[in-house]
């Protein structure tokens, strides 16, 4: 990056460190922080959406739909996320390609499963083999977001399902007394009020989500823990201009600080959000706020 970095052996400690920390390989680490943050930003709303769908399905009066919603939440919550990630991404990818294959190549007559091979027509590949590398990268990123969203959607669904039931019965009865239908009462009374009950559970889910990002490498993404391991491991002079011993501890220490800081920041933001949501609610917290203002 800097002109002096062409000959690292001649550098003094501080300059050496500066050059070392700006190698292309380190850029991979810094870039990975962006990937992780973007993944968190996309996964949170996606999981909320899936969870909302799951909770709605579980509340349904149509039994099969209700069973489906409940089964989704129970099964996915029962499986450790590592076990899920280890096979689910490949399965999901194959499912998408299979559907595209049925649509795009109806006349394809060779077997899709040949022994252990999974072969669909070239037009059904996701992404197409001819796509540039960034399309492949984006696709595996989106698949990872979807997988995370499915896992955390089950937990979010469980929280939202509980929150919907926690809205005081009197509120719903009042809505019925005003002649609202079940759907209207749900939209106008339950959904606006449930958030205050759901937020503590959702906040915790967010904290768990932050800390599960080290599993991203299982989904084919190079996350910060992957780079920390890769950069921190013993480097011999044959393959790098910056040889060093086992430095994994320092890289992991850096990650530890990052995770702690991010957790702290999240706690502060979520605390403020809770304060905002509690305003005007018929709960102990809302009551305290009202009294303080008066």
């Amino acid at each position: 990056m800097f002109a002096m970095c062409t000959d690292p052996d001649s550098l003094t400690q501080l300059d050496w460190m500066l050059c070392y920390l700006t190698t292309g390989k380190h850029m991979g680490l810094y870039y990975a922080f962006g990937t992780v943050l973007l993944l968190l930003a996309l996964t949170a709303p996606a999981a909320l959406l899936l969870g909302f769908g799951g909770a709605m399905a579980a509340r349904s009066h149509f039994p099969p739909l209700s069973w489906l919603g409940k089964a989704y939440m129970a099964v996915v919550r029962g499986v450790p996320d590592i076990a899920f990630f280890l096979f689910f991404v490949i399965a999901l990818d194959q499912l998408f390609e299979l559907v595209r294959h049925k649509v795009k190549c109806p006349d394809w007559d060779t077997e899709i499963w040949q022994g252990s091979d999974f072969v669909v027509c070239p037009a059904a590949k996701l992404p197409l083999a001819t796509s540039p590398q960034w399309v492949h990268d984006t696709y595996s990123f989106l698949i990872a977001v979807l997988t995370f969203a499915i896992v955390f959607g089950a937990f979010a669904g469980n929280v939202l399902y509980g929150a919907m039931r926690a809205v005081p019965r009197g509120q719903v009865e009042t809505a019925e007394a005003y002649g609202m239908t079940r759907g209207q009462a749900f939209r106008r009374v339950i959904v606006p009020q449930m958030w205050v009950y759901a937020l503590p559970g959702l906040s915790n889910l967010w904290m768990v989500l932050i800390k599960s990002t080290p599993l991203l490498f299982l989904l084919g993404l190079q996350d910060i823990v992957y780079w920390a391991r890769e950069l921190g491991s013993t480097q011999t002079p044959r393959f790098t201009a910056y040889p060093h011993g086992d430095w994994r501890m320092w890289y992991f220490l850096f990650l530890l600080v990052f995770y702690l800081a991010f957790t702290k920041l999240s706690e502060v933001v979520l605390g403020r959000l809770m304060l905002r949501l509690t305003r005007g609610q018929a709960t102990l917290g809302g009551e305290t706020q009202r009294k303080a203002a008066a």
Partner: peptide
């Protein structure tokens, strides 16, 4: 202990 991944706790 709540703010860091278990992964990193095991390592240290």
């Amino acid at each position: 202990f709540r703010g860091s991944p278990l992964f990193i706790q095991f390592f240290f």
